[in-house]
Amino acid sequence: MRNTWAVMKKELKIYFSSPTAYIVISLFLLLAGFMYYVIVSNFSLLSLRAGSNPYFSSHLSLNQSVYIPFFSNAAVVLLLLLPILTMRLFAEEKRQRTEELLFTLPLTNTQIILGKYLAAVVVLFLMILATAPYVFYPFTITRPELAPVLTGYLGLFLLGASFISFGLFTSSLTENQIVAAVFSFAILLLLWLIYWLTYVTSFLGDFLKFISFFGHFDNLSKGVIDTADIAYYLSFTLVGLFLTYAVLEVKRWWR
């Protein structure tokens, strides 16, 4: 436990003493903020027009028209940015030859993997949290439903955490950070595209929806907590971490 903590602290120090964390966090705020701005502007236009139409305006909800699209757009931004956050975690240890220290210190592979994973998760947490000021701003003016916003955040966090476990895995495969990022991006993109298929095919539709990261995001962004969705994200994370573990075990023979 303490060793995991030590590894996590080391990774966080590296994140915040190089531009990586700052760049990823600011890009996220910038892109998500821009999307939020567009969505909100669009919504206020709609509200103005709806003012004269009582039926229409009663159907206009901030949750429906702002938060749901915001969270799904933010999820796509995470898909783009998290591979950049995770690409260094193992690849750079290999390139800088620091892994020769890491793997000869009294640390288990599990401690190393969890320490690195948690460090990236902390950065993810901070970058999601940083959107709170503008996301919660409308609460000072009107009364949207709080629960769906909170579960939307939970969904974003769980989604990001499973992205990170796959980024960690691809980083363990190579000493080239770019290769790690591109490979992880490709995997995440594929899982996203699979979700699109569910719109056009009913055959396998449920299965594809089950496999894809995003199929499980919908409920959460609508305020529905289904244990199946939570379990899905946790198992996907475990799969990513386990694959990383397997790579490290096999690599012991080859270095």
């Binding site: 080391k10 120090k13 590296i14 003493s17 190089s18 800088q96 030859r97 620091t98 892994e99 020769e100 220290l101 890491l102 000869t104």
Partner: peptide, 16 residues
């Protein structure tokens, strides 16, 4: 253990 290439994290301060 001191490996052939000193295993150092360039971003960190010596103390950290």
């Amino acid at each position: 253990y001191l490996p052939e290439v000193p295993p150092l994290y360039p971003e960190l301060k010596v103390r950290s």
